[in-house]
Design a protein around this nucleic acid. Sequence first.
DNA 1: CTCTTTTCCGTCAAATTGACGGCAATTGGA
DNA 2: TCCAATTGCCGTCAATTTGACGGAAAAGAG
Lengths: 271, 271
Amino acid sequence: MAGMADTPNADPSNTAADSAIGLSPASACDTPCPARQQTIALVDDDRNILTTLSISLHAEGFATRVYADGETALKALQENPPDLAIFDVKMPRMDGLELLKALRAQSRLPVIFLTSKDEEPDEALGLAMGADDYITKPFSLRLLVARIRAILRRSELAKAPPEEVPGAELPEPVVRGRLSLDPARHQVTWDGKPVSLTVTEFLILEAMALRPGVVKSRNQLMDAAYSDDVYVDDRTIDSHIKRLRRKFRAVDPEFGAIDTLYGAGYSFADG
Amino acid sequence: MAGMADTPNADPSNTAADSAIGLSPASACDTPCPARQQTIALVDDDRNILTTLSISLHAEGFATRVYADGETALKALQENPPDLAIFDVKMPRMDGLELLKALRAQSRLPVIFLTSKDEEPDEALGLAMGADDYITKPFSLRLLVARIRAILRRSELAKAPPEEVPGAELPEPVVRGRLSLDPARHQVTWDGKPVSLTVTEFLILEAMALRPGVVKSRNQLMDAAYSDDVYVDDRTIDSHIKRLRRKFRAVDPEFGAIDTLYGAGYSFADG
DNA sequence: CTCTTTTCCGTCAAATTGACGGCAATTGGA
DNA sequence: TCCAATTGCCGTCAATTTGACGGAAAAGAG
């Protein structure tokens, strides 16, 4: 466990610019408060971003510590590691890449990079160097929080004994009558004949096939096919269903296993 | 719903650019009004957009309040927070970013940013974080509404996270004598013979079948079948009962399990 | 038995919802 | 850079659902 945030650090020994300014929700969590409050370190030379982000994340139930300077940040991160760190790639003296490199020399702390739209070459670089994710500005809070949570979840799973990890086993192939789905191989057949699906199509079909006969609303199918940070139109699901039906019909003109429940959603027919 | 589309609201060509113009569907709540209508605050210096959006959202069933000025908006938002706010990023005196920042200092109100396609992608937009989502103009009403609903849904889930994932457990099938109802599959049988019901019919029947023998008033049945913000005529329930009986009679001419209690309501017969 | 209130049922037009071709934007490679 | 695949969304048309009536029938009241 990372050091329990002593975050309310009234760390008096500091100069304005480089100090860690701790923010810790006093009002506790009015949000999905997980087990323990998690601490996020923010490193960026732009004070505006620092403040805004800090406030926002704080409101999302995280404790935050901010640093405006890479060197100071490095030292603090080593001495008292947070649960996750967010770096701006581009910073004056020691930029995000250097900072990450130095940090990685001794720590496996999860890191998210902030990059600008036009700094693409660095993205690959950052990932190659061991950042866990990166986000290009502009981004919405929703996106950021979704990624933070995803990464934290991942890194916590990694800490736990690998045996009892919930969905860790290889996904079992699903066989439902004439349909067969193999998630691991991303392979689909109908009556033994292969059907080639795109990823999105596959996910939607899988969600339905896992519970044959059960009606899935469009929202449920969206949840199955998309990550938390994207929201697409309801009708988009229609489109995917349309494509699914078309592809299956190409193999079996009689195909009718995807049922529509007017006003409710879709279901994969029992069989 | 046609009546909604009209524009009773005078053009806000009015005076004080910053006054909050309340719009709330005439229907209002003369009744307990369960799920309060959700209110959206719009902040934009362009009166055209303000009016258009307001009318559109209003037609979608939201109440709206509009502000043409960041400072006034801030004050109003703090004093009387809506359920969600939509800011234009670029505004004369206090722009969306400042507004958000000030707001975030004390509130976790869900915010959607409106940005222009051609605004400096880096400078201002880079700061656009902290909003829950942002949409670049031009955008379709459908998209906007979809996002609004998504965010509202999300923030409401966050408010009440008592249990585990909502859609985790499947609703249990209900069996009452010769009747069998499976909510998950939207499947109904009578003596094993399938009966095909529409969603509304299903909900009404389910409400009665859950408490066999107990008389349900029309209002109770309405509550079961409609979301809190829809009101329909009492007689409409009669119609649905009529259709239910007809569909069951088609399968069993002797069917008589739906009883009428003169002056009180309907009940599903014990058995 | 007569009158009043409530319910039933057929009919219908309007609103909602679904299907699907097309298109434009994005992605990922050759 | 150009090409092909994927994907999200729009717009149109078709199908389904459904709220509302009006008159007939049934149930209560006196």
